[in-house]
């Protein structure tokens, strides 16, 4: 799981242009939206595309996304259980 978490952090930094950040700057349990990294709705769309492109996961329920994208830890948990590639 730790390997997946680090990979997700690297992918987040690249996909969301979090320049000047490294994976050690991202708290695994911290909220991604609002406080924490302060991501916005466009970033949420990028995350949805990232999950489909990298892990073959298609999110169709917006309500589900809110919980999945709460933190890197919740994304990693969801990916590990639902990935198709």
């Amino acid at each position: 799981m730790n390997e997946l978490i680090d990979k997700l952090k690297t992918q987040l930094i690249e996909a969301l242009n979090l320049e000047d950040m490294t994976i050690t700057d991202i708290d695994t349990e911290a909220p991604l939206f609002g406080s924490g990294l302060g991501l916005d709705s466009i970033d949420a769309l990028e995350l949805i595309v990232l999950l489909e492109r990298e892990y073959g996961i298609k999110l169709t329920n917006p309500a589900e996304g809110k919980e999945i994208f709460r933190s890197v830890a919740t994304i990693a948990d969801y990916v590990s259980k639902n990935r198709t590639k």
Binding site: A15, L16, N17, I42, D43, L45, E46, V49, E52, R53
Partner: peptide, 9 residues
């Protein structure tokens, strides 16, 4: 293709 919303905006 996988479109990038962040680029599209």
């Amino acid at each position: 293709y996988f479109p990038s919303p962040a680029l599209f905006v």
